[in-house]
Structures are given as C-alpha cells and as structure tokens.
Design a protein around this nucleic acid. Structure first.
Lengths: 400, 400
DNA sequence: GCACAAAACTTTCGTCACAAAACTTATCTC
DNA sequence: GAGATAAGTTTTGTGACGAAAGTTTTGTGC
C-alpha cells in the first residue's frame, strides 16, 4: 500500500537548507551511532561523498558539536579519526510528579552527566514547596556542568495537562495543582536557558523512541502507559509522539473501561484510571492510598487475596482498553512505565491475553508488552527534546 | 511546548533534492489554490523569487503537469498568465463495499472528470461477481479519459483489513471475503496503471484531509467514522492519516463500549460495532438487516419507538467511545461518513453531549461533529492518494 | 496619439553546496 | 624499505537559487 499520509506543506528549499539538512544528517549519524565513526564511516553510512562529509564534519567540530578522538589503529591504511558527539553540549531534564523530583544533565550523545533527585510525597502539595525542591536539584546539577559546557535547554516533565504554548500547567490532579506557570520561579536559576514544559508520559515516550539524539529506540509504534497515582499515557506512531491538536493527547487513563461504572473526578465514569490507577488499586485492596505498587505487588506475592483481585481487575481493564487502542492505531508494542512497571510481571500475562483475544489483526501482528525501567524517564525526555532540536537544526547551535 | 516529535531519519539532500522540493512547492501551490495564480502570485505565496518560480513553472508546463491559461486583464500592468493544474494528469479511484461499487477519474486539480457507479447488495457476495462489476465501471470511466490524458495510478478502497504491501485483502467481514488479491483480475483492464489497495475509511479520510492535491481540508486532526454494515474508521493527526505499523489502523468499530456485553464475530465482546453498526441498529429496532439507515431515520422520525431507542443507544456508544479517543489523541473533530451520515442529525446532539461530559480537556478545546456528504469518499481518496504522489515528487511525472 | 506608470515575466550574473577525481597522509605487511 | 591499503584533502566542475537589471504588455493622463 502507498503510505496514506503527509499532507503537511513543506517549505521552500534553499542552498542553506541543503547545508542544514546535510549537517543534520552527519550530526545525527555521529550522535546516534553505537561506535564513534570516522569521516569515511559517516560517508558510507549516509551516502554523502567523503569530501562533503569532511567539510561538514569540520564545521561541526569548529562549532563545538562534534569532537575528534585520538586516531584509531586498526589494520592497514591510514588510521581513522573517531568522531563523537560533544560532551559539552547538553540539556537539563527536570521532573516533578507525586513521588519524584529530579534533575538530570544529558549530553549530545545521550549520556547522563549527572543527576540529583529525591522522593518526597507531593500529593496535594503546595506548588511552591515542590518547585523550590526542584530548584535545589537543578542548581546542584547545573553546578556540575562540565568545563566550557553549553546547556541548550531545559525540559520539565509534569503529570498533567500542559497548554499548547508550553508555559502553563492547566491541571495536575495527582498533585492537586491547577493553572499555574511553574517556569516563573525556575527561570531565575536557569540564567537564560530556555525552559519548556511537557506532559510526563509524552516526554517519557520521547526518551523511549529516541534514547539518544539521533538514535532510534527499539519501537517506533507504541503506547506508553505511565501509571502512578493516576494513569497517563502517550501514543507514538512512526517514531513521532502524537501530541494532538492542542498538545493534550495521551489521557489514556480517561478512556472508558466500564462506562456507567465507578465515577471519576474527571466528571466521567468507568475510566481506566478508576481500575488501574494506584488510588483505585489500593482502595480495592483495602490498603491506605499511600501504599506503593511495589508493596502491593509484594502483598499479592504473599497471597493477599484482595491485592490479587485488585491487580487482576487492573490488568483486565488495561488489557481491554489497550486492545481497543491497538485496534484503532495498530501499535504493536505496549510500554509500561512509571510505578505501574512494578506490577509488570503480574499484569503482563493478562494484558497479553486480552490483546490476543480482542485485537482484530492479532493473527497478523506481534503484540508485546515491555517495561521502561527508568522511573524518571520524563526528565530524560525533557532533556532529549531540547537535544533533538540541536540534531535536527544544528546551524543555530554552531558556536561562533 | 516544543513539538514532541519527528525522530524519523531524514535522507541526505542533494542539489536535485532542492529542485524537486521547490518543484513540489510550486506545483502544490498551483494545484491547491482556490483561484489560478500567476507566476508572480506563486512567488509571493511561496517566498521563492520570481526568477526561480518562472524557471520551475516552465519546467512543470513543459512536463505537462501545469497548464497556462489565457492572459487575465485586470488593471494596469502586464496581464498575468493564470496557471492551472493539468486536467490531463489524473488518477482512478475505485471502491467496493457492501452497498456500492464505483469508479471515478480525478485530475490533478481534484476535479472529478467522470464517474460510473452502482448500488448492488454485496453482503456475503462472491468476490468475482463484485470485481467484474467494478471492472465494468472502471472500463467505462477509463474510456472517457481526456485526449492525451495520463492516468498515473488507481486506488481501490475496500471495507476491510488490507495487508502492508497493499496487495492483499486479509478480511472484509461485511462482504464475507477473506484473503484474496483483488488486483489480479483488474490489472488486465488497467493496461499497466499501478493499482494499490487501501482501507475504505483510511482513504475516505485522506480525501477529507486533502480534498485536492496540495489543498488542505478544514481539519487536520480528526477521527473519521465510516459507518456501514459495520463501523470502520481512520485517525488523522497533523494532516496525516495514521495507518499504524502494519497498515491495520482504524478499527474503531472494535473498540470496547461494553466489555463483556454483546459478543462480536471478531472474537471479542461489547465492541462499538455491536451497538452502532447497521446490523446492530436494525436488529435492535426489530427490522430486517437490509433496512438502510436512511429508512431507519425515517421510522424514528415517524415515532417508531424501537428505532429511536436503537439510534439513541448507538449515539451513546459512539459518544462514549469517541470521547475516549479524543482523550487519547486530542482530535477535536469527528467526521461521520458512509451510511451513518444519514443518522447524523439524530445522533450528533448525544455524541456532542458525551464528548463535552467525558473529554478531560473539553473546557479548553472546541469539539465538533461534522458529516462527510460523499457516500463513496473512499474512491476519491484512492485517486487522490496517487495524485498526491505527483504533487509530492513531481520529477518522476514530468513528461519527456 | 504618445509618454509614462505599473505589474508580470525574463535574462544575466554571482554565489553556494555538493560530486568526482586526483592527490596526500599515515599506517601495516612482506 | 617498497608496496598495499585506507583515511582524509584539494581541485575542479556542475546545478540551482537569489539579486538586479532588462523586457513585455497593459492602463492612464495630457
């Protein structure tokens, strides 16, 4: 079948567009490679000629985006000069959710240079308290910026609905926050580093599609389920995180599982979150709402019947809703991230079974459920988002 | 917010890429414009210089993709030469579903040059019979190809799951067809015109995003619901029809409305289709399954209680499922296409109400339900798909 | 009726980025 | 130490675009 797609209007191309495109191709090749390639290697991988690659690499090296290593002696011929993405170009990843506050510094190669984090309980918290804590972590990480480092941006992951401009958090039910601009206080610490806000699950999914700038992850079509107190999510198709018309996409927690069932604070009823969110799980298990899902898992392991029943219902709900999503979008991979990952072993079989039974095209496609082991993946995503801008449009980031 | 997106690896750019891109920009501008623009108009609209536009337009005219009209006298100054997309470059759109067989010829400007169609009942039909009928329509339309016309492709819309290669129809429950290659018989009539298969709803959605090559429709983010005997669908985000990893996306009819409810032949239960598909509607209304939705609408109008109840339940099911989809994808527009469009007036208020009540971000976004009046929009989409290839990569289609 | 203004093209020339191919450099092998 | 091998550089040519000056075709005013 022809790709049914792409009505997006492309802009005109100029000679400078050509150069920018090819600089991006070369930089992406360098930053995304498993092993540092040589100029000749880049030429072979991209299809550009060695002369062109040489010129472009020289520009990237002069601009501080790529570093040359010591010559590599391997067999006959002139030894190759290995090329590495600069460790001095980096971005800040920040995250605040109900159980984590974290700051990370990630470089152009996707390597985490430093991290500072804590695990407070922020349910129903005062925004200023949480943001001050974040500012502390941020300052600490920023102080460890390498000599001559350039921090190109900061991305803050939040568990809620962020408006289209990336300035305001409209609502974050788990934190109990509504309509605020978390950036105002932080900018003081940031010394002009551009800050953008994003939904936690969307950013975590971004980190999963693109674990390093220019490097593609194992899946290009998946649903990311971020289960904490509530359930967030993100949809990725064709290696693109779908944010929707206004940036609100991903509210998988409020897809219907049993319409007419449990009322949900969102105003609807029977939402997935009311069956698979932490609050729902702990309530059904007869445990205090602060019980973590890891603790719940242990109780189930120990034979606690109510916990088992709650987890089984959550798995059922997830399986049914995700099967619907797979039918709609043909995304063969489900990624369990956040706290719900702690239940992955226990819920995966049921989810798998429901997918197999309810997905129309199940006979013609693989269906896999995997876990994202990073518990603050949103922070990485926030940083990677800014770094991927560097890789996509390098000219603006070439040092004078 | 920064666009969380686009990890797709771009290819290297060459001077020829430059030319191709700008030829596409110019052609898209000409083919998508409401009024035929002049060279100067194209330059103003695209940002290219007049000299560049002149050269590119000359190439497109020489290549037979653009036609020059008679000079337009309007005020002082040299009169402009109006530019129009060629009426000789066209594509075939074909469609077979349970109630329609149609063939259309559409030109580069998106104008329908001719059509031939019939309304047989093909539920549980023999594929050969339906395809012979399609071949008749096809032959008739092709015979009316304009003098010197070039048919660049044929797209066949089918109400079922098409495999990734676009060669085989895997299953079409409403027709009762399984695993066949409808192209084999048709190619004889096609004299080398490349044929591709696509899902009916996906192609109809394509025609809705891009009613003419290069012209964007009114919505870029929407769900297309194609209600016939079953319920098909398509998801469009950022003006792109999402076909998923294997091309199976769009099975909205098999999203859960009441899991554990009505068993569905798909192997699952409680699927939307079991509440909002024609078969479900007529059964609940106590009418024969061949009753059309237009007839059902008339009965409801006349006060037939069972019909009204069936339609209300269908609207409820659609509203709940679509609200979930909007929560997941932030697509503020719902397009009702196919036969279910005949019920649009009756179901829209309920669907609207459910969306308003169940969509989390409803307070921050518009939500609209519109109808696609074209009852064989899939055929147009099939043709437009091939035509949009011409507009995207014109060089391959320049006449020698 | 004729200069002049206006606007749509066209032509000429300069620039930029890439490809091709010849050339240089650095290492290994015999 | 000669030759092979491969990396990287230099030179030269080409194609496509922009800038600016030139040409064509109309309308307007005296």
């Amino acid at each position: 079948m022809l790709p049914v797609s792409d009505a997006a209007a492309p802009l005109l191309a100029h000679q400078s567009t050509l150069r920018e495109t090819n600089l991006a191709v070369v930089l992406r090749c360098v930053s995304g490679a498993a092993e540092p390639p040589s100029r000749a290697g880049v030429a072979a991988a991209t299809g550009l000629t060695r002369s062109t690659v040489s010129r472009l690499v020289d520009e990237l090296v002069a601009g501080g985006l790529v570093e040359e290593g010591a010559a590599l002696l391997a067999g006959p011929g002139r030894p190759a000069t290995p090329l590495r993405p600069s460790g001095r170009v980096c971005a800040l990843g920040l995250q605040v959710n109900a159980a984590h506050v974290a700051a990370r510094l990630i470089d152009l190669g996707g390597r985490m240079l430093s991290e500072s984090r804590s695990e407070p309980d922020l349910v129903g918290s005062e925004p200023a308290v949480a943001l001050d804590l974040l500012a502390d972590h941020l300052r600490e990480v920023l102080a460890r910026t390498p000599e001559g480092g350039r921090v190109v941006g900061a991305g803050l992951a939040l568990p809620g609905v962020v408006d289209g401009s990336g300035e305001r958090l409209l609502r974050a039910p788990n934190l109990g926050w509504r309509d605020l601009a978390p950036g105002t206080g932080l900018r003081e610490q940031l010394h002009g580093i551009p800050l953008s806000l994003g939904n936690e699950a969307n950013l975590a999914a971004h980190a999963f599609v693109q674990p390093a700038p220019g490097r593609l992850g194992r899946a290009g079509h998946f649903v990311y389920v971020s289960g904490e107190i509530g359930i967030g999510g993100a949809v990725v198709t064709d290696h693109r995180v779908q944010t929707g018309r206004h940036g609100f996409a991903g509210e998988i927690g409020h897809m219907p599982f049993r319409p007419g069932g449990d009322p949900c604070p969102c105003g609807s009823d029977g939402c997935l979150e009311r069956y698979a969110g932490r609050l729902a799980l702990t309530r059904r298990a007869g445990l205090p709402p602060t019980t973590t899902l890891a603790e719940l898992d242990r109780l189930a392991e120990d034979g606690h019947a109510a916990s088992r029943a709650a987890i089984d219902l959550a798995a059922e709900a997830l399986g049914v809703v995700l099967a619907g999503v797979v039918n709609l979008l043909d995304v063969p991979t489900i990624v369990l991230g956040g706290e719900i990952g702690d239940l992955a072993d226990r819920i995966t079989p049921t989810v798998q079974a429901r997918l197999r039974a309810r997905v129309m095209a199940a006979d013609w496609m693989p269906l896999e459920v995997v876990r994202d082991p990073d518990d603050v993946a949103g922070a990485s995503g926030g940083a990677l988002l800014h770094l991927s801008r560097v890789v996509t449009a390098p000219v603006a980031f070439l040092a004078a």
